[in-house]
């Protein structure tokens, strides 16, 4: 079992996302520690990109603030390397293909592994382009996380059977961002995944903000991913966001535990 898969052994997983460097890297480090202490099972750490085409306005804003505060890929690595001294849960980098490519794939993979990351998520690298990146990550013990979308249909089998770490199931069409209602039949999506790969954990993301939404999305899956709702809190409270984010994470994990057991 990979480190990432262990994140799914404490009940339904709660997976928060944050953009590194928003509002600054010191705050990000504190937020990662606080999220881990308050029940996060795995944390997605966004390395900011100037033009995040899969993100809605909330995370676009975070990327912009992070870059304006002088955040670079190297500084994110340095910050994670510090945080790793206290945080034991799996950490996964989420960024765009060009950030990895321009850094140098091999160099990125090596450095990411060195600082203690467990995987990488690249939303603009679909299954067809995965093998350009995955072998270098694999060589350094990093899982490359695959996506499944409501539009994946007959692609699910192939993606799922080659998946590593966990599968990121996109709850609905569109980009990241909070949604009032998620109408996709998550149960049907999960059945297709399970048929192709009974072992791989699946977490659902995109649009989840409330404890009830997390509970609903986790019913047929192994966990819930929350990005924009957390980034919104960080946008509002800035360097003072550790307390409200801690409370939010604790509430979300508690809701999952209450519904499905710890």
């Amino acid at each position: 079992m990979s480190n990432i898969e262990q994140a799914f052994t404490h009940g339904k997983a709660f997976i928060p996302f944050l953009t590194a460097g928003d509002p600054d890297l010191e705050t990000t480090a504190e937020l990662i520690r606080a999220m881990a202490e308050n029940g996060a099972d795995l944390i997605e750490v966004g390395i900011p990109f100037s033009d995040p085409t899969a993100e809605g306005v909330v995370i676009q804003g975070a990327d912009l603030r992070a870059l304006s505060s002088g955040t670079t890929t190297d500084r994110v690595f340095d910050m994670i390397s510090e945080v790793r001294k206290d945080v034991t849960i799996p950490l996964v980098f989420m960024t765009y293909a060009n950030v990895v490519f321009s850094y140098g794939l091999e160099r990125f993979a090596q450095r990411a592994a060195e600082v203690g990351a467990n995987g990488v998520i690249l939303p603009d690298v679909p299954f067809e382009e995965k093998e350009e990146f995955a072998p270098a990550f694999r060589a350094h013990g990093l899982d490359m996380i695959s996506f499944i979308a409501p539009t994946s249909h007959d692609r699910v089998r192939e993606i799922a059977s080659h998946a590593e770490g966990f599968i990121y199931c996109i709850s609905s069409l569109g980009v990241t961002g909070v949604r009032q209602k998620i109408t996709t039949d998550i149960g049907a999506m999960m059945r297709l995944v399970r048929e192709a790969n009974p072992q791989i954990p699946c977490a659902v993301g995109f649009g989840i903000a409330t404890p009830q939404q997390a509970v609903d999305m986790a019913r047929y899956s192994d966990g819930a991913i929350v990005g924009s709702a957390i980034v919104k809190i960080v946008a509002e409270y800035g360097t003072q966001s550790v307390a409200p984010v801690s409370a939010y994470v604790a509430e979300m994990k508690a809701a999952l535990n209450a519904a499905y057991g710890a």
């Binding site: 939303p123 603009d124 679909p126 067809e128 996506f147 979308a149 539009t151 692609r155 996109i170």
Partner: peptide
Amino acid sequence: GGQYVPETLMNA
């Protein structure tokens, strides 16, 4: 070239 797009767009 290539197809570096989110999974949601791949079938499209």
